[in-house]
Design a binder for these strands. Structure first.
Length: 117
DNA sequence: CCTGTGACATAAG
DNA sequence: CCTTATGCCACAG
């Protein structure tokens, strides 16, 4: 095996797609954090990549990016949605309480892929 | 190979 | 919770 596998663009299974896969696994009415997803993928320190993956998701409506928030439960990425309040609307539509861009009852709504899967 | 980037996480103030 | 700074890592060019 070559340890020097620069640019692992193999098999089309990029780190990004894995993020999308996990995002799709998020149950309705639940939320998770970028770090949790990153950790589940084996890259706990790549939480930023998770967010960046979402940025690249553009168009992948299959990816419920609105269910992914930062550790505080704040809708940090809402700026990337088309509507300023679109993200919140989506969350509320799933029965999630959102106040001032922050998810309420986060401890109850939080969904950890490491724990649930 | 190097540089830039980014929707985080953590620490310190 | 805020800002500021640092780390960290994968990907694009």
């Amino acid at each position: 095996m070559k340890e020097n596998d620069n640019t692992r663009s193999e098999s089309g299974t990029s780190f990004f797609e894995r993020v999308y896969e996990v995002a799709k696994l998020i149950p309705h009415g639940r939320v998770t954090s970028y770090g949790a997803i990153a950790k589940y993928l084996g890259a706990a320190r790549s939480a930023r990549m998770v967010g960046w993956a979402m940025n690249a998701c553009g168009g992948r409506e299959d990816v419920p990016a609105h269910r992914v928030v930062n550790r505080k439960g704040i809708l940090t990425g809402k700026h990337h949605f088309q509507g300023t309040n679109l993200m919140q609307q989506l969350l509320e539509s799933e029965g999630i309480e959102v106040l001032d861009n922050q998810i309420q009852n986060l401890d109850t709504l939080f969904w950890d892929p490491m724990k649930e899967l």
